[in-house]
């Protein structure tokens, strides 16, 4: 806390204070005429309302008097501070004002109008963002870890598989595997997470291979694999995107409107910077 006070006592502040005190002294000498602070009905309602929000009830008569006294005291201090120019160069005050203005700008913006035509246009303009990566779904038979399985053993399995290509016999072949034996279509990175990058790459490289093939090596050992489905990378249709497209469109429209509102203000200003350093 003390540190923070010390931080405030910059040279500039000290100068302001001294200048201010000088003015104040002159004012005193001139026996400045009394300022008037009028607390009207609206002010009273605001004070009571604020109190209610915090305390959950209306202030008592005594409490209201205290609120009024506090409000008056605050007003006096604010006016005196302004008189001394303390509102100039105050970072917090500046940010509060900027924030209020920003809210005001946003509040005044119209809600985006969502029409099919507008959505079409937005979809066409941004469709490269909406892509489904290529995916492979597959089955595998685990042949254990360590050295590659003997070719004789692999041939025996492949012959057995060829004889009954549609049956569920494959589920009973090879060794026990801790995870699943059949995987729905997944993109390559998702397969790399499950089986290791080498396995995922091998499966994608040989995506057009039909029937059971392998063995290929994963992070866990050796597998015979069979691709079930390969879906190449494809743009996502408007129907597939559903509500997402509307959400994205709305957000984008709002962002554009906010930027335009700011631009209209900014056009009234010219910003110059003196970059020369002494």
């Amino acid at each position: 806390m003390l540190d923070r006070l010390r931080g405030l006592l910059t040279d500039r502040f000290t100068v302001f204070a001294l200048v201010g005190l000088a003015f104040f002294g002159i004012d005193m000498l001139n026996s400045r005429q009394t300022d008037r602070i009028h607390i009207n009905q609206a002010d009273l309602a605001m004070l009571e309302g604020r109190y209610e929000l915090q305390a959950g009830r209306s202030p008592s008569a005594d409490e209201l008097e205290a609120l009024i006294a506090f409000h008056a005291r605050e007003e006096i201090l604010v006016r005196e501070a302004r008189r001394l120019g303390l509102d100039q160069g105050d970072v917090i005050l500046r940010r509060r004002l900027a924030q209020k203005m920003e809210l005001l700008l946003q509040d005044g913006l119209p809600e985006p109008v969502i029409t099919d035509v507008a959505l079409d246009r937005y979809y066409e303009a941004t469709r490269d963002r909406y892509v489904r990566p290529a995916r492979i779904g597959f089955r595998h038979i685990y042949l254990g870890s360590g050295d590659p399985p003997a070719p004789v053993e692999v041939d025996r399995l492949r012959n057995a598989l060829r004889e009954s290509p549609t049956s569920e016999a494959w589920r009973g072949m090879g060794e026990a595997f801790m995870l699943a034996r059949e995987y729905a279509p997944r993109p390559q990175p998702a397969l790399a997470e499950l089986f290791g990058p080498g396995f995922a790459a091998a499966l994608f490289d040989a995506r057009s291979q039909s029937g059971w093939w392998g063995p290929i090596q994963s992070a866990y050992g050796w597998h015979l694999v069979r691709a079930l489905t390969y879906e190449p990378e494809a743009p996502l249709s408007r129907a597939e995107l559903g509500a997402t497209l509307i959400e994205d469109f709305t957000a984008s429209e709002r962002a554009v409107a906010e930027a335009e509102a700011y631009d209209r203000l900014a056009r009234r200003y010219e910003v110059t910077v003196d970059r020369a350093r002494p």
Partner: peptide
Amino acid sequence: AADKLSGSQDA
């Protein structure tokens, strides 16, 4: 959305 649609649903 892309994530959702690139996911998969195992049995």
